[in-house]
C-alpha cells in the first residue's frame, strides 16, 4: 500500500495571468533603497554646517545660553546665601517649572509646576520672600480626641482617619512679607477620572479661580502675586511639607516675562 504524504515544501504554483514579472523581487529591494536614501540624507545633514545652522544662528544660540547661564549664576548666588543657614528653604523657579524644598543645598522634595497662572504687580528679579502665613482657601478640620478615650483609642482613631498630605488643602496662598503672595492652585491629577472629566474639572477650577480673583476688591489685592498651578497631590504635599516660617527664593525672569 502506498501512503501519500503531504509535502511540507512550498509548491511552485503557476502565476496567474497578468502577474507582473519581477514584482516579487521588488519587495526586498525597497528597504535597500530607503536605507541608501536615509544614509544620503544623514550624510548631507552631517556635512552641512552644524545641521543647517549658520554662524548667525550659532551666535544667537550662544547668546541665549549666556543669558540663561547668567540667570542660573544669579539664582545660585542667592541660593548659596540661603543654604549657608541650616533652615530649609524653598526655590520657586517658574522658568524650569519646578518648586524645590532644600536644605544646605540638598533637595528634600521637589514639585512640578504645571502652569504659571496670572501674576499681578511688578515682578522683582531673583528675590527672597519670607513666608508669613499659609492661608488655605478652605479650612481643614482636624480629627479630635475625646478626653478620657485613652491612648489606644486615640491611636485607633488616628489609624481610622489617617492624617497625611491627602488631608491638606489643595488651594491656598503662601502669604509672604512685603505684600507678596504665592498662590498655589491645583488641577486634577492624571489619575483622577477620564480625560473629559479632568478637562471639565480643570475648566471649572480655572473659572472658579477667575471669579474669585475678580471678586477681590482692588484695595485688598496683594502688591505682587504669582499663581502656580500644580497637580492636587503636589499642592497638598507642598502644604504639608512647609514649616510655619521659611525663606522662599523666587527665581524670576523679568526679561522673559516682558517678552510673554
Amino acid at each position: 500500500m502506498t501512503v501519500s504524504r503531504k509535502s511540507t515544501k512550498p509548491r511552485n504554483r503557476e502565476r496567474p495571468s497578468g502577474f507582473i514579472d519581477g514584482a516579487r523581487d521588488r519587495g526586498p529591494r525597497l528597504p535597500g533603497i530607503f536605507g541608501i536614501a536615509i544614509a544620503l540624507i544623514s550624510l548631507a545633514a552631517s556635512c552641512s554646517p552644524r545641521g543647517g545652522r549658520d554662524a548667525a544662528g550659532e551666535a544667537q544660540q550662544l547668546r541665549r545660553r549666556l543669558v540663561e547661564l547668567a540667570r542660573r549664576e544669579r539664582s545660585l548666588t542667592e541660593e548659596y546665601s540661603l543654604a549657608r543657614a541650616f533652615a530649609p528653604y524653598l526655590i520657586v523657579d517658574p522658568g524650569r517649572h519646578s518648586v524645590e524644598l532644600k536644605a544646605r543645598g540638598r533637595s528634600l522634595r521637589s514639585f512640578a509646576i504645571r502652569e504659571i497662572g496670572e501674576s499681578s504687580g511688578t515682578p522683582l528679579p531673583d528675590s527672597t520672600w519670607s513666608l508669613v502665613e499659609k492661608k488655605p482657601l478652605e479650612k481643614t478640620e482636624r480629627p479630635k480626641i475625646t478626653p478620657g478615650a485613652g491612648e489606644e483609642a486615640a491611636a485607633a482613631a488616628a489609624k481610622q482617619a489617617l492624617w497625611g498630605p491627602h488631608r491638606m488643602p489643595s488651594d491656598y496662598d503662601l502669604v509672604c512679607d512685603e505684600g507678596r503672595v504665592l498662590e498655589i492652585r491645583a488641577l486634577p491629577g492624571s489619575q483622577s477620572g477620564t480625560l473629559a472629566v479632568r478637562w471639565l474639572r480643570s475648566a471649572y477650577r480655572r473659572m472658579a479661580e477667575r471669579y474669585r480673583r475678580w471678586r477681590i476688591p482692588e484695595s485688598s489685592r496683594p502688591r505682587y502675586s504669582m499663581q502656580l498651578w500644580m497637580t492636587e497631590s503636589d499642592a497638598r504635599l507642598l502644604f504639608w511639607s512647609l514649616p510655619e516660617k521659611i525663606e522662599i527664593l523666587v527665581v524670576d525672569e523679568p526679561a522673559t516675562r516682558s517678552a510673554r
Binding site: A55, E58, A59, L62, R63, R64, L66, V67, E68, R71, G95, E253, A255, T256, R257, S258, A259, R260
Partner: peptide, 16 residues
Amino acid sequence: DPAGPVIPPEVARMDL
C-alpha cells in the same frame, strides 16, 4: 511656555 529670554544689549553686541 514663555518666549525665549530677551537678550540684553551687552550680550547682543558680542560677536561669535
